[in-house]
Simulated scan of single mutants.
Amino acid sequence: MQERKSPFQQLDFTLLFFLFVLMCISLVAIYSAATSEQYNVPASYFVQRQILWFAVGTVLLISAMVIDYEAFKKLSIPLYAVSMMLLIATHLFGIEVNGAQRWIGVPGLFTFQPSEFVKIFIIISMAHLLFVITRHPRPKTFTSDVIVVGKILGVGMPPFAFILIQPDLGTALVILSIIFIMILMAGVTFRMIGLLITIGLTGIASLVWLHNNAFAIFTQIIRPHQLSRIYAWLDPSANVGAEGYQLYHAIQGIGAGQLYGSGFGQGVKSQSGVIPELHTDFIFTVIAEEFGFIGATILMVVYFLLLYRMVLIAFTCNNTFGTYIVAGVVGLLVFQVFQNVGMTIGVVPITGLALPFISYGGSALVTNMLAIGLVLNVNIRTKHYMFGEEE
C-alpha cells in the first residue's frame, strides 16, 4: 500500500533548515570579511549583493522542484549539447581575467561562468546514462566494467578537458569527482576501482618524474602559475613573497583563532587586509580565526548534516535515476567543501574553488542552490510504500 502525501508534506524541511543556517553563517562571515582594510566599500555592499544572489538561487531552487525530474531524461542530451556549446563559446569568445578565460559576458548586463552550470548539466546527463546502463542486469565481468567506465568517461572527459584548458583546475577536479562517484554508483568491481586509482597515481608519479628529469616537457603540461601554487603548498613559508603569501597568512590566521576565536570582526589577519580574496575563496579563514575551532567545527557539522540528509534521500528513493542525481550532487558538494577547507589549511594546493553556500559570489552560489533544488525534487516525488516497493 502506498502512503499518500502531498509534495509539500514530503518537502525536506530539515534539509532546508541546514541550508538556511549556512546562509546565515555566510552573511555574518562576509560582513566581517568586508570590514577588512583591503576593501574600499561599505561592508553592507557585499552582504546586500549576497542576499540578492541568495534570492536568485532560491528562485532557481524552486524552479528545479517544479518540473518532475523524470522529464530530465528527455532533456539530458540537449543539456549536454548546451554544456559543450557553452564551453566552446567560452574557449573562443570568453573574457580573460588573471590569465584564465572562464567567463562569458552579456554586454551591459552581467557576466557568468558557464562551467558552474555545466556541473549540473553533467550530473543530469550522467544520471540518465547510468539509468540506461543499469536498467537491465549486466554480467559482473572486467570486460563489462570496461564498457561501462568507457561510456561514463566518454560523457565526462570532453567537458573536463575544455574546463582544464581555460585553465580552471578546481572546476575540472569537481567534474572528475562527479565522474568517480558515478563510476562507483555503476556498481563496477573493486578490481576496476583499483585499476582506476592505480592509473591516477601513475599519472601523478609520471608528472613528478617529468619535473625532475624532463622539465621542459613538464612545463607543457603544468603551467608556471600552477607550478608556483604547488611550490607554495609544499612550503608556504619559503614562498611568502610569491604564491605562498596568501596561504601563509591564512594558516597563521586559522591558528590564531585557537579554541574560541578572536571574536567577530576582531581577527588580526582577517582585518589587516593581508589575505587576498578573503570574502570569496578564503572565507573559511574568517570563520576559523574569529570564531575559533568551535565555530569551524559547527560549520563542518552543519555541512555533514546537510549531506547526510541528501544521502538519506538517495537511499529512500525508489527510482534509480533520482538516486543517481542525488549521488552526483553529493559528490559535487563533498569535493568542493573538502577542497576549499583543505586549501586554506594547507592540506591540498590552492585551486580557487568557493566554499559552498558560504563564499561570496554569483555563479557558484546559484549553481549549488539549483543542485539542492534537484535533490528536493527527487525527494518530493519519491513514493513511499508501507510494505516495500511497488512491483
Rank of each mutant, 00 (worst) to 15 (best):
Q2N: 04
S6H: 13
P7N: 05
Q9L: 11
Q9C: 09
Q10Y: 05
D12E: 14
L19E: 05
L19P: 08
F20K: 03
A33D: 06
T35Q: 12
Y39T: 06
N40G: 13
P42C: 00
A43S: 07
Y45L: 05
V47R: 03
Q48E: 15
Q50V: 04
T58R: 06
V59M: 02
I67V: 13
I67Q: 11
Y69Q: 03
E70W: 01
E70N: 10
A71N: 08
K73E: 06
S76I: 01
P78L: 08
V82C: 02
S83C: 00
M84I: 09
L86F: 00
I88K: 04
A89N: 04
T90F: 02
L92N: 08
L92P: 07
F93E: 08
V97W: 03
Q101F: 02
G105I: 08
V106C: 02
L109A: 07
L109K: 06
F112C: 06
Q113Y: 04
K119Q: 02
I120V: 11
F121H: 11
I124G: 07
L130W: 01
H136W: 13
L153D: 14
L153Q: 13
M157S: 12
A161I: 15
I165L: 12
I165T: 15
A172D: 13
A172F: 14
L173N: 13
V174T: 15
I175C: 12
I181H: 13
I181E: 14
M182I: 11
G194A: 10
L195P: 10
L195Y: 13
L196P: 14
L196Y: 10
L201D: 09
T202Y: 13
I204S: 06
V208L: 11
L210C: 03
F215S: 06
I217M: 14
F218Q: 00
F218E: 02
H225C: 10
Q226P: 05
S228N: 03
I230Y: 11
N239H: 07
G241N: 04
G241K: 05
E243K: 05
G244R: 01
Y245W: 12
A250L: 09
A256N: 11
A256S: 14
Q266K: 14
K269R: 15
S270C: 08
G273D: 09
G273S: 08
E277A: 12
L278R: 13
H279G: 10
T280Q: 10
D281N: 07
F282A: 03
T285I: 12
E289V: 10
E290I: 06
G292E: 11
I298F: 15
A314K: 15
N318S: 01
F321W: 07
G322F: 00
T323G: 15
V326Y: 02
G328D: 01
V330T: 00
T344H: 00
I345W: 03
I345T: 00
I345L: 00
G346D: 00
T351P: 03
G352V: 03
L353W: 03
I358P: 02
I358D: 04
S359T: 00
G361I: 01
S363F: 05
V366K: 03
A371D: 08
G373Y: 07
V375P: 08
N377D: 07
I380R: 09
K383A: 09
F387A: 04
F387I: 05
E391F: 14
